[in-house]
Simulated scan of single mutants.
Amino acid sequence: MSVTIKDVAKEAGVAPSTVSRVIADSPRISQVTKKKVKKVMEDMGYHMNYNARVLVRQATQTIGVVMKHSSSHSFDNPFFSEVLSGISKACQENDYSLNLTTGESEEAIFRDVIKMVQGKRVDAIVVLYSKEDDQVVPYLMQQNFPFVMVGKPLMEASNIMYVDNDNVQASNEATDYLIQLGHERIGIVGGEADFEVTKARVEGYKKALALHGYPQNASYIKYRKDGSYDGTIITEELLGLPEPPTALVIMDDFHALSIIAALKEAGVSVPGDMSVISFNNTIVSRLSSPSLTTVDTNAGQLGYYSADTLIEKLQKPGMMNKSLIIPTNIVERESCRERK
């Protein structure tokens, strides 16, 4: 037989209404009493009725997560798994659940968001991207619905909470790393061109080249399309240039795997003929052959602090919006070598 509020109240020596207020985290109940009652609840194996708590508190204790792409594409890439792991950790610490978008297109993902908001299925939302011509963020702003972005907003950055890396600086450092190895012909393989992270990293790459007085070759800048991680066409285009690059900055470990496979197919060895530095320091970078030199973006922290900041905002509605920059660092492995 399940344990009830009355059972907990009797064991704790308090009124059932006090137990209810502890569950609702009422400020009228002292921390001493809360601690005592929660200990009894834990010892007795009491599990609160979340549906009842939603009615009392007018809150779902659930955070929505809006994926960058369809769930099938997003979960292919371990970067998003690590971000979600960080979000999940923060939610677990604060007794929140997660609700993920499952749409297979931008329009379907947007419809999922409308259902979350209008159906009061979540208390707030984490948006895992920042991009041009996005429907989600303007909608959330119009609805005055709490949200945070993983990525710097392309509009009204001062009015929107976000957690990000300094992607301009990170890409600048990655490009400079290759320059210090003696490379002059350096290409960059980005994500989709309309995402803010891609724009920032291309900017950092260009700044590094300019600082060293190297000419910028538009043919060395390539973008991923339609969420695909297949690097075959991009590799063929780069190798087909009159003067192919000798080094590549690739914006994602997972995409780097495909590029390296395509290079190998073309008879180009890494790092013998082509040096490669990527981003994110996921498990892919450690298991790749050769192992990848990569920029550690601390994906788990990006996820953790996005959710933690959002939950803090829910608990303190009057709090000023926070924006956090998570530091990055280069992890040296086997995919780069000095240019002779």
Rank of each mutant, 00 (worst) to 15 (best):
L178A: 10
H73D: 13
M44A: 06
E184W: 00
L257E: 06
N172Q: 14
S74R: 04
T62Y: 03
K222Q: 11
K38A: 10
L154K: 10
F195Q: 04
L128I: 01
G213F: 00
L55D: 10
I234Q: 02
K38Q: 15
I114L: 05
A174W: 02
T33Q: 02
A9E: 10
S288C: 13
G303H: 03
S88N: 15
K35Y: 08
I5F: 01
P27A: 12
T18H: 01
D252E: 07
L55T: 13
N49T: 12
T198M: 00
Y162W: 15
S2N: 14
A262T: 10
D43S: 12
D273P: 10
E42Q: 14
S278I: 02
G318M: 11
A108G: 14
T175W: 01
V126L: 00
S97G: 14
T175M: 02
T235Q: 06
V56N: 11
I29P: 00
D95P: 08
Q92P: 00
Y214L: 14
V148A: 12
A266K: 13
D296Q: 11
I326R: 09
V150W: 00
V32T: 15
D253S: 11
V148Q: 05
Q180E: 13
A266H: 13
Q31I: 10
A12C: 04
M319E: 15
G272N: 04
E132H: 08
I186P: 06
K340F: 09
I330F: 05
A208W: 04
A59S: 13
G267N: 03
K89I: 10
I283D: 15
M149H: 12
R339I: 05
I260A: 00
R337I: 14
V202Q: 09
T294W: 00
F75M: 12
D252Y: 01
E82I: 10
N49W: 10
E338R: 15
G151W: 03
L241G: 08
D76V: 12
S105M: 00
A90P: 07
D194I: 05
Y46E: 05
V276C: 03
M274K: 08
F75Q: 07
A256K: 07
V249S: 01
T102D: 04
F279V: 13
I125Y: 03
I283F: 14
R337D: 12
E334M: 09
